[in-house]
């Protein structure tokens, strides 16, 4: 069975809640995979070491993980987070940036440190800036239907379907509303479908006279507008309809 891990970095757990919003299908999913690490959902492989002074009970990241879903940005100022992320990369075959915090930095791109009690936690990056990421699933949170499509494509090895996620991981770590505007509207490619406006989970995009206006005061750099815009890219799989 495919060994799956869920790793929680600097995140809000909304992405995992989204996965749980598979409702009646959740038990089915948990049966289709072997969830080998997820401190929120399960007790982990536990290593107990005992000395005269100390009993240490540690939950460790297992070896030979097939798919690691990493939720959250990485705080490069926190050595534990950095070490965990590197360990995840080493021990996992496929690393997925699960949600916008991991894919683009999302809300954490605003962080600038200075807050007690850890004022030195300053920099929170999309994980792809620290390790090689194979696929990115933006969205704050990414919708469950998209997560499931991805997981089942991965289980079936449907690389055609997975291609847009690979491209996003590679090319769109820095995108946001303004970036979409520059890539599409400022290139005379926007035809006013309104998809970006519907997708935007903060409602930062409003359509006027058939074109989007971006309220950058409300943009959290999640990148989902860019991901969904058909004038950025369309996968060939979209054209197979029944």
């Amino acid at each position: 069975m495919v060994r799956v891990a869920h790793v929680h970095l600097s995140a809000c757990t909304g992405c995992l809640i989204s996965l749980a919003d598979s409702y009646e299908k959740l038990p089915e999913i948990l049966e289709a995979i072997d969830l080998v690490y997820s401190i929120t959902l399960a007790d982990e492989k536990t290593v107990v070491t005992e000395t005269d002074e100390k009993i240490s009970i540690e939950r460790v990241y297992p070896d030979n993980v097939d798919i690691a879903l990493v939720e959250g940005s990485v705080c490069i100022d926190d050595e534990h987070s950095m070490a965990l992320l590197k360990e995840v990369r080493e021990k996992s075959n496929i690393v997925v940036a699960f949600g916008s915090c991991a894919a683009t930095g999302g809300i954490n791109s605003f962080s600038r440190g200075g807050q007690d009690p850890q004022p030195t936690h300053t920099a929170f990056l999309p994980i792809g800036k620290v390790i090689k990421v194979d696929f990115a699933l933006p969205g704050c949170a990414p919708a469950i239907e998209g997560i499931l499509n991805f997981i089942f494509a991965a289980l079936e090895g449907d690389t055609d379907y997975m291609l847009p996620y690979a491209v996003f991981a590679e090319e769109f770590m820095d995108t946001n509303g303004l970036d979409l505007a520059r890539r599409v509207i400022s290139q005379s490619l926007c035809m006013g479908c309104g998809t970006c406006a519907a997708a935007c989970q903060t409602r930062a995009i409003k359509m006027y006279d058939g074109k989007p206006n971006f309220d950058m005061d409300l943009c959290i750099n999640c990148g989902i507008c860019t991901f969904q815009c058909p004038r950025i890219s369309v996968s060939s799989t979209v054209f197979n309809i029944e």
């Binding site: 989204s18 919003d21 699933l137 933006p138 969205g139 949170a141 990414p142 919708a143 469950i144 239907e145 998209g146 997560i147 499509n149 847009p164 035809m191 479908c193 309104g194 998809t195 519907a198 997708a199 935007c200 989970q201 989902i224 507008c225 991901f227 969904q228 815009c229 058909p230 369309v234 996968s235 799989t237 979209v238 054209f239 309809i241």
Partner: peptide, 24 residues
């Protein structure tokens, strides 16, 4: 919708990361 809107819609249905509980 127009053809371009249907490409967008089909993409939203097939890749629904920003369209929670909408496609079906």
């Amino acid at each position: 919708g127009t053809p371009c809107q249907l490409v967008a819609l089909r993409k939203a249905i097939k890749y629904p990361l920003g369209f929670r509980h909408v496609g079906d």
